[in-house]
Amino acid sequence: MQWTKYVIPFFIVYIIQLWSVEFLSLSAIRPDFCVLLILYWSVRDGRFSGTIAGFIIGLLTDLSGAGSFFGLSPMLYSITGYAGGYLNGLYTKLSPLYFTLSWIGILCLQFLLSSLVIFQDLLISDLPLFWFKWIASASYTLGFAGILQVIFPIHRLS
């Protein structure tokens, strides 16, 4: 296994995430570049690599300063890596629309699970705000994912 093909992109994305989130923060909601990297890796290399990469990146993300729920990011990123791995080699078998909807669905699921844990009190006290938080955080990252599709489409890896 070529470690450099994981370590270098991870290091670059991690630094971008660490340094840029503040500038890109909109009303305390930020894009998640790490989850995009995990999705790309899992589509390229499959479930096994995606899950391991997700766990390690999640752990490092939480070590970078998680206020509460330390351990949530490794779990969510592992799920994303595992689910994304199912898309490995599927682009030619699925229609482009289904393939695209699948990875969008995986990202939305990741953000839904994250919101269910982080905003659990909103789920009881203010459901519309909970949906807003979920949709806003998912859409923001999906916006960047959309831009990335123009530069480097995910289906090229599948």
Binding site: A28, I29, R30, A66, I118, S137, T141
Partner: peptide, 12 residues
């Protein structure tokens, strides 16, 4: 640092 999670919930 203001964390790298998608929601601003912690500071370093």
């Amino acid at each position: 640092n203001k964390g790298i999670q998608t929601n601003l919930i912690s500071l370093t």
